[in-house]
Design a protein around this nucleic acid. Structure first.
Lengths: 237, 237
DNA sequence: CGGTTGTTTGAACTGATTCAATCTGTGTGG
DNA sequence: CCACACAGATTGAATCAGTTCAAACAACCG
């Protein structure tokens, strides 16, 4: 599995690579890339799609990281899912109730829903792949729910860092990870304030679990990190 | 939509009814029921499936409510999803990392993964239905994440009550709802302690938003209830 | 250089937890 | 029909994790 993820990392040049890395047969990945589409470079500064839009588009992430977000009644923002290279964002008939924003500058393939639907119908294998991806994302949502509901703030942040290392294909015991998030974004993912995230990160560093070099993170004690995070990567498949 | 949900409510006698209520064409619903399967009555007292199991089975809920749950490192329990009549629980190849428990006594159809897979391949329409159901469940997960991450304890409980009313097809402004949850279960869903859930419920009652009659709940002011919960049912589709 | 975005720190506050005790309803066996 | 057990609900008091508000600092960029 780690091999699979390694391939799905940020360096892949083509979407096909990323999709194949995510477990899709090469000939089917080619079908997706052959679908009529636009390529868009998405800037992290401003929202890419507002909540309520995105009823007719399919997105595939070629490189970078996208975030789905929602806003509660009083305007507090919550990031509800991340999409790495090879991941897709499917529309719902009723329109999506979430918005989409880039975490880092990303390249995104934007296709028509109708074209994609046709593809799905013509290629049952592709339908199965999409279902499997969706189930993987569900498993990640579940893990996030456990984080938000039951873990303390330290464990939540640690868990996010562990998951991000795995999903972006970094080998945490040897490589440093280019942490893609601002502290505000970590707060929006883990349901806290950026002030507290700051304190938690400082704590983790003080305890010798991580070292920080600008935005980069070096895991000094991966085993202990996993332990306090309660992180076991099996849910990532 | 409320009509659709009304049909999916607890009273439906057959699984077909529930599935059709959830939007499946009758002839395809029949296919699912024709699949080789066992019928099991699940008791709420003890877990139905432990985490780690459920790699080869498909579940469909005929009546009642099932909960998927996970446990964090230190043994604290989090309910991550609910499945009402007409909902299904699909396996993952790697086995599921969640357990399954009934909230109320439920009737469940248990089929073989292989049979179900065959069904999916043979009927693209069914594949589409399953994908759509899965997306609906994802949308619910997202809303739960917003709850756990950004809403205060009152809003979290209120939101759960609103969602439960909708999903179980109760018309909140006229009918009373047979609240299926113990306070501990509400705590396990909303990421709190049962002690606090108790205080929140007492608060809601004191404010005149709900009235309680044993386990039953009467919504005294549905509009205000929705408001403090930040509940807008569009995500349920 | 000034403007902007992100990080860091302190002090006061508060919502929710924890622990512990009590109360209530229901079912069971004598 | 009562005694007992058990699960769930309720309440209080002490504590604490995380928020809020405010201010300062650092890094980057045109």
């Amino acid at each position: 599995m780690s091999k699979r993820l390694r391939k799905a990392a940020g360096e892949s040049v083509t979407l096909s690579d990323a999709l194949v890395g995510a477990g899709l047969a090469p000939e089917l990945a080619a079908k997706i890339e052959a679908m009529p589409h636009r390529e868009i470079a998405v800037d992290p500064k401003r929202p890419f799609r507002e909540p309520g839009g995105l009823a007719d588009e399919v997105l595939f992430v070629r490189s970078g990281i996208l975030a789905k977000y929602k806003t509660d009644g009083s305007g507090r923002r919550q990031i509800i899912a991340l999409r790495f290279a090879g991941d897709g964002i499917l529309p719902r008939e009723t329109g999506t109730d979430f918005g989409v924003q880039a975490i880092v500058r990303s390249e995104v393939l934007v296709g028509q829903r109708s074209d994609f639907d046709k593809l799905i119908v013509d290629h049952p294998e592709l339908a199965r792949f999409v279902l499997k991806l969706t189930q993987r994302h569900a498993a990640i949502s579940y893990e996030w729910l456990v984080s938000c509901g039951r873990r303390d703030s330290t464990a939540r942040v640690a868990h996010l860092l562990c998951e991000t290392a795995e999903r972006s294909g970094v080998d945490p015991s040897h490589e440093r990870m280019a942490n893609p998030f601002t502290q505000q974004q970590i707060a929006d993912i883990t349901g806290q304030t950026s002030v507290n995230v700051n304190r938690v990160l400082a704590d983790l560093e003080r305890q010798g679990l991580i070292r920080r070099d600008g935005r980069e993170i070096i895991f000094e004690d991966w085993g202990e990190m996993r332990r306090i995070a309660g992180f076991s990567p099996s849910y990532l498949q």
